[in-house]
């Protein structure tokens, strides 16, 4: 039982970590919390559905869907955020809300207000067991994909020139520009990475939920925001830590709270977040250069 719940917690925490990381990458460089991040997930979800309907093999469909998320993020930056680059943080924030609402309405009116079922392959609902202990294929994939994505991102940021430039930009963007590195490229890469992470998270999300709907991005972006704040806004290791912490607390409460108190689960989680912030106002692992949105 306990081992099972630990797997549940790590699997959920991994998805939250991917989401929070997507928000944090953009925030660390542009100082924007992109609330339209959830709609990138929705878009990837619909792209997966469309590819499957068109008869693409499953791995191909996943590839198309994740790329759609990444490209949409770059397009979003180009169309909505680049013209606002010199604007205040508040204007950027409002722009992200506007993009989010706009996309939701487009999905609702252009596709359908009704959730669309996504038929995941049969093996994904399977489970394998060791003795009296069963692990679902879904949660296992979730854990493996999150871990691989986190490692890949770390390698990219440590080993590549663009990655190094991005880490530098997070500390002091002006100096990086003085070194002759084009700002647009850094920012576009940040959005590309955040879109990739949103696409991956969407695949894991949809695999567990079996449907996509126009409003599906709302909850994940909210969770990601909470995780990013708890971890320390703008700090990438912080976002990962915040994501796992949130996942673990949620599963733990769901597993242990008696039925009478269970409806207050979210309230208890958020109280926990406040407590963490009271003890560590800059988050669990604060960013090198602290900024507030």
């Amino acid at each position: 039982m306990i081992a099972q719940q630990i797997i549940n917690a790590v699997s959920l925490g991994g998805v939250y970590a991917l989401l929070a990381l997507g928000l944090a990458i953009v925030f660390s460089i542009v100082g924007l919390i992109n609330f339209a991040h959830g709609e990138l997930m929705t878009l990837s979800g619909y792209a997966l559905l469309a590819s499957l309907v068109l008869g693409f093999p499953f791995p191909m469909a996943v590839l198309v869907a994740v790329s759609c998320g990444a490209l949409a993020a770059v397009a979003m930056e180009r169309i909505a955020f680049r013209p606002m680059r010199s604007a205040s943080v508040t204007s950027l924030l409002l722009t992200s809300f506007a993009v989010s609402s706009l996309l939701k309405v487009v999905f609702q009116n252009g596709i359908s207000a009704r959730p669309q079922a996504v038929a995941m392959p049969g093996w994904m609902t399977g489970a394998f067991s060791f003795g009296d202990f069963t692990i679902g294929v879904g949660p296992s994939i979730s854990i493996v994909v999150s871990a691989l994505a986190l490692i890949a991102l770390e390698v990219f940021l440590r080993r590549s020139v663009t990655g190094t430039a991005m880490r530098a930009a997070a500390e002091d963007f002006d100096v990086v520009r003085l070194m002759g590195i084009p700002a647009s490229r850094i920012i576009a890469t940040a959005f590309l990475l955040s879109g990739l992470l949103a696409g991956l998270a969407a695949m894991l999300w949809v695999a567990q939920r079996a449907s996509v709907d126009p409003l599906m991005g709302f909850t994940p972006v909210l969770k990601a925001f909470i995780a990013a704040v708890v971890g320390g806004l703008g700090s990438l290791p912080g976002a990962v830590a915040g994501g796992f912490l949130l996942g673990i607390i949620e599963v733990l409460l769901q597993a242990t709270l008696p039925a009478a108190i269970a409806p207050y689960r979210d309230a208890i989680v958020l109280s926990g977040v406040i407590a963490v912030l009271l003890l560590r106002p800059q988050g669990l692992i604060p960013a090198v250069r602290v900024q507030r949105s």
Binding site: G126, A127, A210
Partner: peptide
């Protein structure tokens, strides 16, 4: 109902 019902049953069957 949707989207909770699909999520529940997907995860229920996924857990065996």
């Amino acid at each position: 109902y949707e989207p909770d019902f699909p999520a529940f049953i997907q995860q229920l069957r996924g857990a065996g």
